[in-house]
Amino acid sequence: MKSNTIISQSMQKFISLIILLLFFTISTAQNRFGNPEVDTNQIQKNFSDWSNYQGKNIMLSRDFTALDLQSKEISKESFLDQLANGNCIPIRLKSEDSKYYYQLFEIEAGSDTSIKATINQIGFDALKNYKMEGTPFPKFLFKDLNGKLVSNESMKGKIIVIKCWYIHCTPCIREFPQVNRLAEEYKNRKDIVFMSLAEDAPEKLKLFLARRPLAYSVIPNMKVYMNEALQLNSFPTHFILNKEGMIAKVLPNFESLEVALRKVSEM
């Protein structure tokens, strides 16, 4: 009996050790990239909290390490596809380095239904933009408000920054001071061109820009081109074209534009 008791106690210790090792292994795997910077359950309680977090902390157009529900590294395309078509929210992880780590977490059953619908749309737009990167920018021959003609051929050998907008787009107008500062920052770079495509007619644009100046050249009557050639459904949208006329980045706001242009201009 004593021998059996000793064996039983040894077995219990062995099982306990295995459990501890498994727990340590799982914890290490989960924490290898860092822990969530917010409570993943609490952030889903209401749409306002999630929307504020998403807007300030998640930029899907930037370069980031993408992680799935099991904390495994996946491609950015797969990550965006799951946001567009799945039941996930992206959360940034705390990390000791300067890199960005975004992980997918399942949307809880009791969460505001608007969260899922909005994430699916954000994911769809981000995935579409991502797939455009590395492809040629559609052929163009534009005339700006000053009568200057620009085309794919005339812009060869230059980095082109393009802002797509229209007069009644509040987010588009709100970032005017920021994009103007960006254009000023690069004004001595003769190999960088700032150009904007606007939906509106020349007369309306001239009246509007007299009150709200834009430091980009402005191409009027671009609604059809933006809808059909670029297939845009979100404004503002920014493009950065490299010197070969390929789309280097497609971006939804100034914050991601500033970082991306710095990288492209240093290549």
Rank of each mutant, 00 (worst) to 15 (best):
L209I: 09
L197N: 07
E203M: 12
V250T: 08
K204H: 13
D191H: 04
K156V: 11
R181I: 07
P213A: 12
I167L: 08
L207K: 15
V193I: 14
E203H: 14
V161I: 08
H168F: 13
K206I: 13
R262N: 13
Y166F: 14
Y216G: 06
A201N: 15
I219Q: 03
P202L: 10
S196Q: 03
K204G: 06
D200R: 09
Q178V: 01
S256V: 14
K204V: 09
I247S: 05
E184A: 13
M195Q: 14
A229W: 08
C172W: 01
H168L: 13
N188K: 08
E255G: 05
A210T: 10
K206M: 10
S234M: 11
E266W: 08
E258W: 08
K187A: 08
E199Y: 08
E228Y: 04
I247L: 12
E255T: 12
M195Y: 13
L230M: 11
K156D: 11
K223C: 01
N227H: 14
I219P: 00
L182F: 02
P202V: 09
R181F: 10
S217I: 09
V179F: 03
F194E: 12
E185C: 08
S265N: 14
C164P: 00
V259W: 09
P213M: 05
I160P: 00
M267E: 09
R189S: 10
L207A: 15
K163H: 10
K187W: 07
I192C: 00
V193F: 10
I160A: 04
Y166A: 02
L182C: 01
P177H: 06
K263L: 14
W165P: 05
Y186P: 07
L251Q: 02
L232G: 01
F235G: 04
A248M: 07
M195L: 15
H168W: 10
H168M: 09
Y186Q: 02
V250I: 02
K249D: 03
E266F: 07
I240R: 09
Q178G: 04
T237I: 10
D200P: 10
N227G: 01
F194I: 05
E199H: 07
E184H: 10
I159W: 09
E199D: 15
A198C: 12
